[in-house]
Simulated scan of single mutants.
Amino acid sequence: MESSGAVHVEDRGDSRWITLDNPQARNAYDQHMAARVAEVLEECGDVRSVVITGAEGAFCAGGMLAGLTSPTARGMRALYRASSRMFDAIRSCPRPVVAAINGAAAGGGNELVVACDLAVASTTATFGQTGPRVGSAPVTGATNVLSVQIGEKRAKEMAMLCRRYSAQQALDLGLINAVVPADELEQEVERWCAEIAALSPRYLEITKVSSNVWWNSARDSFAQGVGMLVQAIGSADMVEGASAFMAKRPPRFQLDPGEFPTTSQ
């Protein structure tokens, strides 16, 4: 499958900026984009910090949904693997990774924020998961690590109910570190990067590796969750959720009576 978007990489002083560029889909990523981000992150030992952002007023809408109306096991496994690799690459990158959230962070884009070490958002940014609304589940961050960041009840609210949260709400929850006006976002992130550049890269790496204890503990949950998603490829809920999203209509999910047998008396 051809990549539907691009990943731009630019060095700004001591920082490496990674920009997701798929504006027609609000910078949603396919497996090729996710793999490219991972490749860049895996080679960032020569800079002091890394910034991930989105092009044209959106941060990231998560994984591409266009193919889910007629999914293939091979294609979905590739997307799941690439997503997991990208999130792990953020955590294993020796340098602090900062999310510069310039718009909507939805679904896997919200989990991208969860994976990043630090996060600065513009006042125009929004946050939230989409899984159960579009026929999926946020198993690589929002059902596990997010609880550590914002608390279990709030994390379940976000993962299960698919609500949207403003930048200020995300700040109050503890999902992000700061909120600034949209026209000040890049300058603010550059100030954070300058602050990072004044610190010891060796001991920042030690601090980061040590802080990954909860992420590492959740790895089994990631693997189990992805395994369940693979088993659900092509399910009625996956097809309906994706179809409704593409058609911009409410989904019509149905209970399967066969899953809930009644007990005769």
Rank of each mutant, 00 (worst) to 15 (best):
M1V: 15
S3R: 08
G5L: 05
V9F: 03
D11R: 13
D14K: 12
S15L: 07
R16W: 03
R16G: 09
L20C: 07
R26H: 11
N27V: 11
A34T: 07
A35R: 10
R36P: 05
E39K: 12
V40E: 04
L41S: 04
D46S: 15
D46F: 09
R48I: 01
R48T: 03
S49R: 02
S49L: 07
I52W: 05
T53E: 01
G57M: 03
A61G: 15
G62P: 12
G63A: 15
G63F: 10
G67E: 09
S70C: 15
R77P: 05
R77Q: 13
A78I: 08
A78Q: 14
R85K: 11
A89Y: 00
I90Q: 02
I90K: 02
S92E: 10
S92L: 14
V97A: 08
A99P: 01
A100R: 08
N102W: 08
N102R: 06
G103A: 06
G103V: 03
A104F: 11
G107P: 02
G107V: 05
G108E: 01
G109L: 12
V113Q: 01
C116E: 04
D117S: 07
D117H: 15
A119M: 04
V120P: 00
S122K: 01
T123P: 00
T123A: 14
T124G: 09
A125G: 06
G131I: 11
G131L: 10
P132W: 07
V134Y: 08
A137F: 14
V139Q: 02
V139M: 06
V139D: 04
T140K: 09
N144H: 11
V145F: 14
V148Q: 02
G151D: 02
R154V: 04
K156P: 00
E157Q: 11
E157G: 07
E157S: 11
M158G: 02
C162F: 02
R164A: 09
S166I: 06
A167F: 05
A167S: 15
Q169A: 07
G174E: 01
I176G: 01
D183N: 11
E184R: 14
Q187T: 15
E190L: 15
R191Q: 14
A194V: 11
Y203S: 09
L204K: 00
K208M: 09
S210T: 15
S211F: 10
S211Q: 10
N212V: 10
W215Y: 15
A218D: 06
R219M: 14
R219H: 11
D220A: 15
G227P: 04
M228F: 12
V230C: 14
I233G: 07
S235P: 01
A236Q: 13
M238G: 08
G241F: 02
A242I: 10
A244W: 03
F245E: 03
A247S: 09
A247C: 06
F253S: 04
G258P: 01
G258F: 08
E259F: 10
F260R: 03
T262N: 04
S264H: 08
Q265A: 15
